[in-house]
Simulated assay, not measured.
Amino acid sequence: METTETFESLVRTEFAPVGTFLNTASNGLLPTRAVTALYDAALLRAQGQPLTALWEDVEACRAAYARLAGVPVERVALGASVAAHGGVLAASLPSGAEVLTAEDDFASVPNPFHVRGDLKVRAVPVERLAESVRPGTALVAVSAAQSADGRVADLPALREAARTHGARTYVDFSQAAGWLPMDAGEWDFTASVAYKWLLGPHGVAFLVVPEDFGGLDPLLAGWVAGERPWDSCYGPVTELAHSARRFDLSPALSCYPALRRSLELIEELGVPAIHAHDTALADRYRAGLAALGHEALPAPGSAIVSVPGLGSRQPELGRAGIEVSDRAGNLRASFHLYNTEADVDHLLDALSG
Results as ranks from 00 to 15, higher is better:
T3L: 02
T3M: 00
A16G: 08
G19R: 04
N23I: 01
T24Q: 13
A25N: 14
L30E: 07
P31I: 10
R33N: 13
V35Y: 00
A37N: 03
A60Y: 02
C61H: 07
Y65S: 01
A66S: 09
L68V: 07
L68W: 08
A69Q: 08
R75A: 00
G79Q: 12
A80P: 00
A84D: 14
A84W: 11
L89S: 01
A91M: 13
S92R: 08
S92W: 06
S92N: 03
P94K: 06
P94R: 12
E98W: 02
E98D: 09
V99H: 10
E103G: 00
A107E: 02
A107C: 02
V109T: 15
P110Y: 05
G117P: 09
D118R: 05
L119V: 03
R122H: 11
R122C: 10
L129Y: 05
A130P: 14
A130T: 10
E131M: 02
G136D: 04
A141E: 05
A144Y: 14
A148F: 10
D149V: 03
G150T: 07
E160D: 14
H165D: 02
A167P: 08
Y170S: 12
G178I: 03
P181S: 12
D183L: 13
A184I: 11
E186V: 11
F189Y: 15
A191S: 15
S192C: 15
S192T: 15
K196M: 11
L198H: 04
L199H: 09
L199R: 09
P201C: 12
V204L: 07
F206D: 01
E211S: 15
L216T: 05
L219K: 08
L220P: 04
A225E: 01
G226F: 02
E227N: 08
L240S: 05
A241I: 09
S243R: 10
R246F: 03
S254M: 04
A258D: 06
A258N: 07
R261P: 00
L269M: 04
H275F: 13
H275D: 11
H275M: 10
D278S: 15
T279L: 11
A280Q: 11
A282E: 11
A282P: 10
Y285K: 09
G288S: 05
L289I: 10
H294E: 12
L297Q: 11
L297M: 12
I304P: 09
V305I: 12
V307P: 00
V307W: 00
V307C: 01
G309E: 02
S312G: 15
Q314E: 15
L317D: 10
R319M: 09
D326K: 03
R327A: 08
R327T: 07
N330R: 13
H336I: 01
H336R: 09
D343K: 02
D345F: 00
H346G: 06
H346N: 10
L348E: 05
